[in-house]
Structure formats: structure tokens, C-alpha cells
């Protein structure tokens, strides 16, 4: 039987990859993808705990979370489209009007 630790470690690794990508990638679309990675790492956690506790609630919420991720992705891409329309690019490094 696979120990719970493996699932959690997988989730942590995926989350860290997402984090790394989010911190380093410039393109808005790639950053959104990284966010999705992090979200799904959380989903893995949810399902893993759900299974190992014999309680289906976590899996139900993983489903909900996937649905919300879809919503978030839709909004994210819509925002990126707006930015693209205004600035002709989606390089989030250059979107720094809020700086000092």
C-alpha cells in the first residue's frame, strides 16, 4: 500500500514547480498555467486525505475546486485578453504601473 507521504510529497513537488514557474515566467499565460498547477497540487492533497480518512467529503470538494479553477482560468484569460488589447503584449513584468 502506498503511504500517504508519497501523495503529499507529489503534491508538494507539483506545488513548488508551480511556484517556481509563477515566480520566474514572464508570459501571463504561463503564469496562469503555473497557478493551475498549484491549485491542482492542492486538489491532490484533498483527494489523498479524503481517501486515507475514508471520508468522501474531500473528493466532493476537489470536484468543486476543479470547477472553480475553470472559472478562475476563464477570468484570468479574459483579463489577459484585455491587457493584450491595451498593451499589445502579455508580459506581466512590464505591467508595473503600481510601482513606486
Amino acid at each position: 500500500m502506498i503511504p500517504l507521504f508519497y501523495y503529499l510529497a507529489l503534491s508538494a513537488i507539483i506545488f513548488s514547480i508551480g511556484l517556481f514557474g509563477f515566480m520566474t515566467q514572464r508570459s501571463g499565460i504561463r503564469m496562469l498555467m503555473c497557478v493551475e498547477l498549484m491549485l491542482n497540487a492542492a486538489n491532490i492533497n484533498l483527494v489523498a486525505f479524503s481517501s486515507y480518512n475514508g471520508d468522501l467529503t474531500g473528493q466532493v470538494f476537489a470536484l468543486y475546486s476543479i470547477a472553480l479553477a475553470a472559472a478562475e482560468a476563464a477570468i484570468g484569460f479574459a483579463i489577459l485578453m484585455s491587457i493584450y488589447r491595451v498593451r499589445d503584449m502579455i508580459d506581466l513584468n512590464k505591467i508595473n504601473v503600481l510601482r513606486w
Partner: peptide
């Protein structure tokens, strides 16, 4: 110190983490 406020989301994310 105000130069820390770069306005770039990624820098903020890095700092938070």
C-alpha cells in the same frame, strides 16, 4: 526603501513565499 515596491506581481509573490 520605496524602490522595493516594484509593481511587478512576481516580485511580490517571491517576497511572500
Amino acid at each position: 526603501l520605496r524602490l522595493l515596491q516594484t509593481g511587478v506581481v512576481q516580485n511580490y509573490a517571491t517576497s511572500v513565499v
